[in-house]
Design a protein around this nucleic acid. Structure first.
Lengths: 144, 144
DNA sequence: ACATATTAGTTGCTTTTGTAACTAACAAGG
DNA sequence: CCTTGTTAGTTACAAAAGCAACTAATATGT
């Protein structure tokens, strides 16, 4: 496949990954954008809080490998839209615990199920084994 | 893997794809950035011209699914850096054929081989079959 | 021939991101 | 205590991307 002189964009992983990521992101973003006016990082923050429970911005940064300024801005925007609230941690006032408001929780539930549905439509295009290989490879590439 | 209530970011393809794309792009961009001060779209334009021969901006847009403003700006930047030149097509003066200058060609050669090398280091982490499945899945997702 | 539509490419303006410098709270050693 | 260092998070400024309106050349229908 990677014969010396035939090396091609179709073989080049950074390119392939970008194209695939772009397509799926664009498709899924219509949900959180249209319905809730969220940006990608905002949706990611909401997902973390909804799926894994309250946590600080730094924890979200670590778990999702997202830069803190991105998360900081997402948190600010989500707060303004009343999807999340912050609580300063008394024991260490540098930390703020983030948690979903009722409407944040409702948005999460909706988007969570939309995410699962969307994911299934993509997943259905491949065999079980292909899906396993795909996810394993992606995970391995991602945590370098 | 996708049991109803265990649905997780590790299963969500848009997320996995983004993380993996981000990692590889970041790693590879050090080459074209440091060595030639190129941006991603600029490198992509150079790759197209070097690998597939002279073509117009629109052809590059179509082949790489990149928006024309991005390509337009990349072309402008590459021209300023003397990596490419434009030639208005006499038969239809709306078109301009893009082609690499000697130094553009040199940069392409260098980056092309860096790309192949980088790609091999990623590829080596998987079996031949895994690589086939991975690329096939990504290609299928990308052309939707 | 002429009004209308299409195509290639650019530009201006806005939104988003990246980088680095900053504040505030805490920790730890002398 | 008090200097020094670290950690959480923000903000200011610059780089990049997206979108929509634009010019210029050509094609098309009447």
């Amino acid at each position: 496949m990677t014969k010396k002189d035939e090396f091609d964009l179709k073989d080049f992983l950074p390119y392939l990954l970008n194209q695939a990521a772009e397509v799926t992101s664009r498709e899924f973003q219509t949900y959180y954008r249209r319905r809730y006016g969220m940006l990608r990082t905002e949706w990611r923050v909401v997902f973390h809080l909804g799926r894994y429970g309250d946590m600080t911005a730094t924890e979200i940064c670590d778990r999702s490998m997202t830069h803190k300024t991105k998360v900081s801005r997402a948190v600010k925007a989500l707060e303004k839209k009343r999807f999340i609230k912050r609580t300063v941690v008394e024991e260490d006032k540098r930390n703020e615990t983030l948690s979903l408001t009722p409407s944040g929780r409702a948005a999460f539930k909706d988007l969570f199920s939309a995410a699962r549905t969307y994911n299934e439509t993509v997943t259905r295009r491949f065999t079980a084994e292909e899906n396993d290989v795909l996810r394993a490879c992606l995970a391995k590439i991602a945590d370098t």
